[in-house]
Design a protein around this nucleic acid. Structure first.
Length: 519
RNA sequence: GCCAGUAUAGCUCAGCGGUAGAGUAGGGGACUCAUAAGCCCUUGGUCGCAGGUUCGAAUCCUGCUACUGGCACCA
C-alpha cells in the first residue's frame, strides 16, 4: 500500500507560533499517528517558510542576516513541536539547499516549456512600504493614504507564470474531482472563486527590491515569489526530481495537505494544482486538501493588533500537552471555526479525561487488585457482558471510520461514549456487592475482566490524540494496545494476566488563581 | 456587490420531512470501587425573523436580519 503522506502548511518565520499553528500541527499529527497505528507507512511533512520580504525587513530592523533571523524564529516552532509531541518525519525549511535546487529545476523546466515569460508591469508603488499598490489600498476618496508615504508610478520587469492557460483545465478538474477539497462547501467556494481568477501569476521579485529568496536560475536579477517557492516544499522535501525521486514516486500523491481556510484561495486551490498541472502531473496525481477552520478567542478574532493572541507554549506549560491536544481536537468540528477558552479546556480535560476515562481506569484497577489480587479468573460471560463487549467492538469500528474520514472530534466522542458505558456498567454490576457474595464469584471475575478490556480499547483509541497518557494507562493495565492493523481481533485477557497499580493519569486541572489579585 | 458558511436548551454541539436531542452547567436521589470522581432521575428551547410548499417543516423553497470567510468594488 502507498505510504500515507500528510503535510501541513509551512509556517512563516516572521512571528512566533500562536494557537492556530499548534492546532494545525496537532491535527496532522493525530491523523499521522492514527495511520501508523493502522500499520501504514507514514510520511508526515511540516516545516517553515523562511523567505520573503517580511523576514528580510525584520532582520534588517534587528541588524542581523535574514538567515539568522529566520533560524531564530524557526527554533521557536521546533521547540513547540517538541513540547506538543508532533511526530513529523520530514522538516521542510525552505532555505535548505535541496529545496532551492528543486525550485530552480522546476523553474528551468517550466521556462523551457514556455510556461514562463518576462513582461513589464507598471503601477503605483510605495517607496516606504516597498510594494506595489492595488486599488484595494486606495482610501474612500480614491487616493492612497498617508501611511504609504510617497507613491510613484513605477515600471518593473518581472517573470510570469501562464496561470491563465490552466483556467479551463482547473474548472474541469474541480468538476471531475468533487472530493479535491474537504469539507465539501470549501470546494464549492473554490469552484466559484476560481472561475473569477484571471490573468497570469507574477512569480518573481527584482533583487533590488527583495534579495531574500531563491534566485531565478535563468535571470539572476530576480528571486522567486514566496508562494511559488513555498508550495513546492510539498514535493521537494518528499524527494521530487532529486536523489529521492524513487521515494517520491511511492509517496505521491499527498493524502492530505492540511491547511487553514485562509490559504485555500488562491494559493492551494488555484496556484498549486495549476503549478502541478504545468509540471506535468496527471489529474489522477493531484493531492487532496483538508481545510480546517480558525480559533477565535472569546468570540473575537485572534489578531496581533488587538493583542488577544493565545500563546501555545504558555498553555502547554500551564496545563500540559495532553489536555491541550485533547481540547483542540475535541472542541473543533473539522472544517468549522471554534472558540477558544481555558475554561472549556479544563472542562473537557477534567470531565471527559479525568472523571470519565481516568476514573474508570482507577476504580477498575483498584477493585481488581482488592478483590482478585490483580488477576481475574477466566469465566463464562453472561449475556449482558457479551452485549457490552459487542457494543465496545462497534465503538471501535465506528472510531476507525470516523478517523479515516478525519472526523477527529467525532472519534473522540465515540471514546467518551464507550467510557460512559463502562462507568455505567460498574454501577449496575456493583462489584463491591458481588465481592461479598460467594455465589457471585464468577460474575465478579467476568465484570472486572470486561471493564479492563473496555479501558484497553479506550486507551488504544486515544493513543493518536494523547500518546503519553494512553501509554501510561496501558502500562497500568499491563496490556499492549489492540493492534488496529488488518482484521481486528479483540482478544480476552491473556493467560496469567495480572494488572498493574492504579495512579491518576489525568490529575484535576484548575485555572491559575491570579485574576483576583488584579480585581 | 457577488459567492459561500453559520444561526437549535445558560454554554458546546447533534438532528436535516413524521410527537424537539446529547454532553456540560443548575436541581433532586440512591450508592461507596474510584481523581469529592461515577451512577440514576430531573429543570430548561415559540429550533434567528417573516412568508411559502406539504396531510405534516428545526429539516425543503423564497425574502430579511446578524455573524464568519473568500472574491470584487471603492474613478
Amino acid at each position: 500500500m502507498k505510504p500515507f503522506f500528510i503535510t501541513t502548511a509551512i509556517d512563516y518565520t516572521n512571528a512566533p507560533p500562536h494557537i492556530g499553528h499548534a492546532y494545525e500541527k496537532i491535527l496532522a499529527d493525530v491523523l499521522a499517528r492514527f495511520q501508523r497505528q493502522r500499520g501504514r507507512e507514514v510520511f508526515f511533512l511540516t516545516g517553515v517558510d523562511q523567505h520573503g520580504q517580511k523576514v528580510q525587513q525584520s532582520a534588517e530592523r534587528e541588524g542581523i542576516p535574514p538567515q539568522e533571523f529566520a533560524d531564530r524564529v524557526s527554533e521557536k516552532f521546533l521547540s513547540l513541536w517538541k513540547t506538543l509531541g508532533i511526530s513529523y518525519d520530514g522538516w521542510a525549511a525552505t532555505t535548505a539547499p535541496l529545496h532551492k535546487e528543486a525550485v530552480q529545476r522546476i523553474l528551468t523546466d517550466l521556462k523551457e516549456r514556455d510556461w514562463l515569460y518576462k513582461a513589464t508591469y507598471s503601477g503605483h508603488y510605495s517607496v516606504r512600504q516597498e510594494q506595489f499598490l492595488t486599488d484595494k489600498e486606495r482610501g474612500p476618496d480614491g487616493e492612497f493614504g498617508p501611511e504609504w508615504g510617497e507613491v510613484i508610478l513605477l515600471d518593473e520587469e518581472n517573470w510570469y507564470f501562464r496561470l491563465s492557460k490552466c483556467s479551463e483545465w482547473l474548472a474541469g478538474f474541480l468538476e471531475a474531482r468533487k472530493d479535491f477539497v474537504t469539507p465539501d462547501f470549501r470546494q464549492t467556494e473554490l469552484r466559484n472563486a476560481a472561475a473569477k481568477i484571471t490573468g497570469d501569476l507574477c512569480i518573481s521579485r527584482p533583487k533590488s527590491r527583495l534579495a531574500w529568496g531563491i534566485e531565478l536560475p535563468f535571470d539572476p536579477g530576480f528571486v522567486t515569489y514566496v508562494w511559488f517557492d513555498a508550495l513546492i516544499n510539498y514535493i521537494s522535501f518528499a524527494g521530487y526530481g532529486g536523489a529521492g525521486q524513487e521515494l517520491f514516486e511511492k509517496r505521491w500523491p499527498c493524502d492530505h495537505h492540511v491547511i487553514g481556510k485562509d490559504i485555500l484561495i488562491p494559493a492551494h486551490g488555484v496556484y498549486w494544482p495549476c503549478m502541478l498541472h504545468a509540471m506535468g502531473f496527471p489529474d489522477a496525481a493531484m493531492p487532496h486538501l483538508l481545510v480546517h477552520g480558525f480559533w477565535s478567542l472569546r468570540g473575537e478574532k485572534v489578531s496581533k493588533s488587538t493583542g488577544n493572541v493565545v500563546d501555545p507554549d504558555a498553555l502547554a506549560e500551564a496545563y500540559g500537552p495532553t489536555a491541550l491536544r485533547y481540547y483542540l481536537m475535541r472542541d473543533a468540528v473539522m472544517g468549522r471555526d471554534a472558540d477558544f477558552s481555558e475554561e472549556r479546556l479544563l472542562l473537557r480535560h477534567n470531565t471527559e479525561l479525568g472523571n470519565g476515562l481516568g476514573n474508570l481506569v482507577n476504580r477498575t484497577l483498584s477493585m481488581t487488585r482488592r478483590y482478585r489480587e490483580g488477576a481475574p479468573r477466566p469465566v463464562e460471560l453472561s449475556p449482558d457482558l457479551v452485549a457490552h463487549r459487542q457494543a465496545d467492538t462497534e465503538s471501535l469500528r465506528s472510531f476507525i471510520i470516523q478517523m479515516e474520514a478525519a472526523q477527529i472530534h467525532a472519534g473522540l466522542e465515540t471514546i467518551v461514549d464507550l467510557v460512559n458505558r463502562a462507568n455505567a456498567l460498574v454501577d449496575s454490576a456493583a462489584p463491591w456487592k458481588l465481592a461479598k457474595d460467594p455465589d457471585q464469584s464468577d460474575r465478579l471475575d467476568a465484570v472486572l475482566a470486561t471493564l479492563i478490556l473496555s479501558a484497553r480499547i479506550a486507551a488504544t483509541l486515544l493513543l493518536p490524540v494523547a500518546p503519553d497518557a494512553s501509554a501510561e494507562i496501558l502500562r497500568q493495565l499491563a496490556l499492549d494496545p489492540i493492534p488496529l492493523t488488518g482484521e481486528i481481533v479483540i482478544a480476552d485477557l491473556p493467560a496469567g494476566y495480572v494488572c498493574g497499580e492504579p495512579k491518576p493519569v489525568f490529575p484535576r486541572l484548575e485555572l491559575p488563581a491570579v485574576e483576583d489579585a488584579a480585581a
